[in-house]
Simulated assay, not measured.
Amino acid sequence: MRKITILIALFIGIMFGCQNSDLELAPTENLQSNDRLIPLRETFDFTYNGKTYSSPFYMENDTIMILEDEEVAVIYDRLLELPDLATYVTPNGDIAYYDTYNELLEKLPKQTQRNSLVNPIKYTLTVYEHANYNRDRTGKIQNFEMPVLLPELKSYGMNDMISSCAVTNSLNPGTIGSVTFFRDPNYQAQSITFTYAFPLGDPTWNNYVFLLVENFHNYKVKKKINWNDRISSLKAF
């Protein structure tokens, strides 16, 4: 009877192991009794046409993200070839894609424009030449009082030179707003929109900071091309 019990336990263990064989887990030799097994593989998630897609990925040469799910990879690659692709980044970092910026405005009107008449407190958009807000090396800086529409950045010496940005103010009103960057002048071609609502509570800033984009290199314009040094016009509300 004891042998039968052991065999049943082994059989259940083998079946359970087979069902979870596609999940890579952290090594268990150093785990304590109350520790959980944590998957080593990261996933890339995005939303398009109301559907959320997810795929494990790995980085090739530390620069190119390779999606392992072939179906998701095909959809993602197709999106990155859209000439007017609009990328929307929520305050918590989630990403949604739209065919055009106008479609984004139709789907998310409240998140993309702040009513300055209701709340006249001025926000400041600061754009930086280098990543990490020029903290690692000296570079150009431009401050723009919001709301602002800039159909071209050449006259400000910042065309195709923006690597990070921040939105700040001194009074913490906590109202919804957004900043949209476009690849071409006159709000043309691909765009990327960031929304904000509440201060981030970052102690390294003197004013209240509502939006921080530390490195545009982390966002794709199209396959093998990121947003770093790719911005030629912008709208900020």
Rank of each mutant, 00 (worst) to 15 (best):
Y133Q: 12
N186Q: 09
L211S: 13
T43E: 14
T126D: 06
T195M: 12
V127G: 03
Y123W: 10
Y133R: 09
P56V: 03
R78H: 09
N115A: 08
Y156D: 14
P91V: 01
D229E: 11
G177H: 05
V167L: 04
R114C: 06
L25E: 12
L171C: 02
F194L: 02
Q190F: 04
V213M: 13
T87G: 05
I225K: 02
L211I: 10
D99V: 07
Y123C: 03
Y76G: 04
I141F: 05
P173S: 02
L212W: 09
N34K: 14
D160Q: 11
P173H: 01
K224E: 11
E145P: 03
T112V: 12
A26N: 14
I95M: 04
F182T: 05
L105A: 03
K220L: 15
T5Y: 01
I12Q: 08
I4L: 13
E24N: 05
K222S: 12
P199A: 02
D99W: 00
F44A: 04
K235D: 12
V167Q: 02
N207K: 12
L150T: 12
L23T: 14
L105R: 10
A96N: 08
P185T: 08
Y187Q: 06
Y88E: 07
L104F: 03
V167F: 04
L31M: 12
Q188D: 14
L31I: 03
Q111W: 05
S55G: 09
E152Q: 15
E152N: 15
K222A: 04
P203A: 10
P120F: 00
Y187W: 11
L105S: 05
E60W: 01
F44T: 01
M15W: 12
V127A: 06
A96S: 15
T112G: 03
I231T: 08
T28F: 12
G201V: 08
P173Q: 00
I231S: 08
R2I: 06
